[in-house]
Design a protein around this nucleic acid. Structure first.
Length: 445
DNA sequence: AAAAAAT
């Protein structure tokens, strides 16, 4: 670690954050951590947005460290990891809004996200936070191609200053010369590890990054996520840092320190697949009424359907979201849940990353997240992102993992070992008291 | 497998 990083580490401690985030800086730009938003040279319009629209008081850990790195010239690239629900979105949205020149009518900031839902959510934050800035924005997302489909060649060129979208549409617009990249000042990858993972969006992401950096060598690139596994870190070291060329900053958290303190995790052993449905029906649905909103994660679209139908048949109100639904339907389900009109949502890994709904206090892994190449291995990253849908910003939350059979138990053990975090067993899947006990331990009752 | 997206 360089002397600069040591200095930074010291400053961070003095700011009152005994944080496991370890900054690594290259070059000799000195950074201090921001204690107040006023320390960041933000425009009065942005500060107003932060205080009045967002009701923020002071920067969170990750914000106080990363915002200085993002906003201090020379504007260096940044690879930043931080815990779920710790305010990463604010970091890059503030970054984008600060770097845009309001007088220049051209795309200057671009944020690429893995799902439509996340892009829409990020746009909502941007609009709120940037309300007084007059900065313009547009979503780059696929549309329902059945009705009023406008082909790319027919649409007008993008003049909005900030663009948020998904990789396919963004690349399509760039290729069709509808999204100009010549004035780009900042490029953000939300859920960057997934955007650069082999089985993820790697080609699309790298293509967009190369194209923009070629056109604008000074464009600042930000990679944000709660997880960066070793494979992705290797890929970034070998392929992305080359694109970054010179100087970049890094913030990482040890995997053993990624589990949220405020979340209490449980495992429930059940004898067979059918009893999983019984646990959801008799225990989870009853609990969900009392503790706030709940998300139940399943592995496949089909099992989402099956569980949904079973619960509806038993007379419970649930909604389900998965990728084969129409876009219109997906939007409706998310909106209803965010508006608090629905309490229990069944989801595939569509909502695993980034979905932010503060009232979610309970997450259920109906199926454990497994590695797509080898289903006896866990997908630790997906696990962490799923459970991170509860306990946003330090709120209390509970997680129930339903385990059926030896393989599930082994996978659960591996997850516990990976994060060095013991998951408490609920003694009996049939006992109401055991579940109530669990909620008491989680501080939800 | 699911995510985006285009076919």
């Amino acid at each position: 670690m360089s002397s600069v990083s040591l200095l930074l580490a010291k400053l961070i401690t003095e700011a009152g954050y005994p944080t496991p985030i370890s900054p690594v800086t290259t070059g000799d730009t000195p950074y201090t951590s921001a204690v107040k938003f006023e320390d960041l040279n933000l425009s009065p319009e942005l500060l107003k947005g932060l205080y009045i629209q967002m009701n923020f008081e002071k920067p969170s850990k990750i914000q106080s460290i990363s915002l200085q790195m993002i906003l201090t010239p020379p504007f260096k690239n940044l690879i930043a990891q931080a815990h779920n629900g710790s305010g990463k979105t604010t970091c890059f949205v503030l970054g984008m809004l600060s770097r845009v020149d309001p007088k220049l009518i051209a795309p200057q900031a671009l944020c690429i996200c893995p799902t439509r839902e996340l892009a829409i959510q990020n746009m909502e934050v941007l609009l709120k936070m940037g309300k007084y800035t007059g900065i313009t924005s547009e979503l780059a997302l696929p549309t329902d191609n059945k009705k009023d489909y406008i082909s790319v060649s027919k649409r007008a060129p993008v003049i909005a200053q900030v663009i948020i979208g998904t990789p396919g549409t963004i690349n399509k617009w760039i290729k069709a010369k509808k999204l100009g990249t010549s004035q780009m000042k900042i490029l953000v990858f939300d859920e960057a590890d997934h955007m650069l993972a082999e089985s993820g969006f790697r080609e699309d992401s790298v293509r967009a990054m190369k194209e923009i950096v070629k056109e604008c060598p000074n464009c600042q690139v930000l990679l944000f996520s709660a997880t960066f596994n070793d494979k992705v870190k290797d890929f970034i070291s070998n392929n992305i840092k080359v694109i970054f060329k010179e100087e970049y900053n890094e913030l990482f958290v040890k995997k053993e320190e990624l589990s949220l303190e405020s979340l209490k995790q449980f495992k429930v052993k059940v004898p067979d697949e059918l009893s999983k449905i019984i646990v959801i029906k008799d225990k989870i649905m009853e609990i969900a009424e009392k503790v706030g909103q709940t998300i139940i994660f399943v592995r496949t679209r089909r099992s989402a359907e099956i569980l949904h139908e079973a619960l509806v048949k038993y007379g419970y109100e649930v909604t389900t979201i998965q990728g084969s639904l129409t876009l219109e339907h997906r939007d409706k389900i998310v909106k209803e849940f965010k508006d608090g009109l629905t309490q229990v949502l069944i989801s595939t890994d569509l909502l695993t990353r980034g979905f932010d709904q503060s009232k979610v206090n309970l997450v259920v892994n109906y199926d454990l997240p497994v590695n797509h190449e080898c289903d006896t291995k866990p997908d630790n990253e997906v696990y962490l992102h799923r459970i991170g849908r509860a306990g946003r910003f330090g709120r209390k939350g509970a997680v129930f993992n339903l385990l059926c059979g030896d393989t599930d138990e082994m996978i659960m053990k591996k997850i516990e070992h990976h994060f060095n975090h013991y998951v408490t067993e609920v003694p009996s899947w049939k006992s109401d008291e055991d579940f109530e006990d669990a909620l008491k331990k989680a501080g939800l009752m």
